[in-house]
């Protein structure tokens, strides 16, 4: 299960909306139990409405900060601008870390939909997302 505060959910949605018409993306830092401590927005260096890539500099700094604070990089979020909040075949192939939470925001409909998945050996499993006030 992934646990997000309302403010963190809003930060994820805001990052995705600001990135339009491109896909938005960022990282999730937190404890191994899936409680997110920090949302780290990233520039989409793929600069595309169909693909995303986290800025490697953001990734480097996120890993370093996580190490310093004794937490982990828990996962990644990105948006689908015109499709459902489900991992595409490319998302699955590019999701090599079985310990990560893969959050996808669909901006196709209003309100936006935020769902989270685990991807293990290219098998996608939805997971619950708990929102705290």
């Amino acid at each position: 299960m992934l646990t997000l505060s309302s403010a963190q959910r809003d930060a994820i949605l805001a990052t995705c909306i600001r990135a339009l018409p491109n896909e938005g993306c960022g990282l999730l830092l937190g404890a191994a139990d899936g409680v997110v401590r920090e949302v780290v927005p990233s520039r989409n260096v793929a600069d595309s409405a169909k693909v995303y890539e986290i800025d490697p500099g953001v990734l480097l700094r996120a890993y370093r900060r996580a190490d310093e604070e004794g937490i982990d990089v828990l996962g990644v979020f990105h948006s689908h601008t015109h499709s459902e909040a489900y991992p595409s075949p490319t998302d699955v192939r590019q999701a090599p870390d079985p310990s990560w939470h893969y959050v996808i925001v669909s901006l196709r409909d209003t309100p936006a939909e935020l769902l989270s998945y685990r991807v293990v050996d290219e098998v996608v499993s939805p997971e619950p997302v708990k929102f705290l006030n």
């Binding site: 995303y52 986290i54 990734l59 590019q94």
Partner: peptide
């Protein structure tokens, strides 16, 4: 030296 596999995806 830090190795960082790219975090990426998409619909291509």
């Amino acid at each position: 030296i830090t190795l960082l596999p790219a975090v990426a995806g998409g619909v291509w």
